[in-house]
């Protein structure tokens, strides 16, 4: 319910923001256009509906006591193991899609990403050195195969010009 309380406020803010933006859209009064065609109508209506739904949810969560937010609860959620794994996953994926792709040749970016991803997640799973080496060699192999296969299929079969 706490989540509902927070998201309902977000939804209300988005609804308000969208409504204000829609309200400010041009109405072309000086151009003799049909008043029912102005750009702001539909987004305006939609943002009002969103606002209404957000308010319903806010009221509902307040009735159920969702507004009582305890600091320790939030803190423990923020620093949990789940958040840690999320950060690792985001750094790896965004690092690939935003930073590597387009800067390195596509196949090379893919090799680097695949290797780092597999290595980062499999490293802690192995206790001794030997199995770690095996895992890393496996990671290199997978990375190479995937990079070559994806590059070949998209470039040769689907004629996509890779980034």
């Amino acid at each position: 319910m706490k989540a509902d309380f927070v998201t309902s406020i977000l939804v209300i803010l988005i609804g308000l923001g969208a409504f204000v933006t829609s309200w400010r859209m041009p109405r072309y009064e000086n151009l003799q256009v049909n008043p029912y065609t102005v750009p702001g109508i539909v987004p305006g209506i939609l943002s009002l509906i969103l606002l209404l739904l957000g308010i319903i949810m806010l009221v509902r969560s307040v009735i159920r006591g969702g507004w009582r937010i305890e600091v320790p609860g939030v803190a423990s959620a923020l620093f949990s193991a789940t958040s840690g794994r999320l950060v690792v996953a985001l750094v790896l994926t965004l690092g690939y899609a935003v930073v590597l792709v387009g800067r390195l040749p596509y196949w090379l970016a893919t090799v680097v990403f695949m290797f780092l991803f597999v290595a980062a997640y499999e490293w802690p799973m192995h206790a001794n050195r030997r199995s770690r080496v095996v895992s890393l060699v496996g990671a290199v192999l997978i990375a190479a195969i995937v990079a070559v296969a994806v590059t070949a299929v998209f470039q040769q079969v689907f004629l996509v010009r890779l980034p």
Partner: peptide, 21 residues
């Protein structure tokens, strides 16, 4: 999953790109 998910992510990236380059 440690091996499947990065493959899927590579496909997601190239898939999103290839629609309109």
């Amino acid at each position: 999953r440690e091996r499947l998910m990065p493959i899927i992510f590579v496909l997601c990236t190239i898939g999103a790109f290839s629609i309109a380059s």
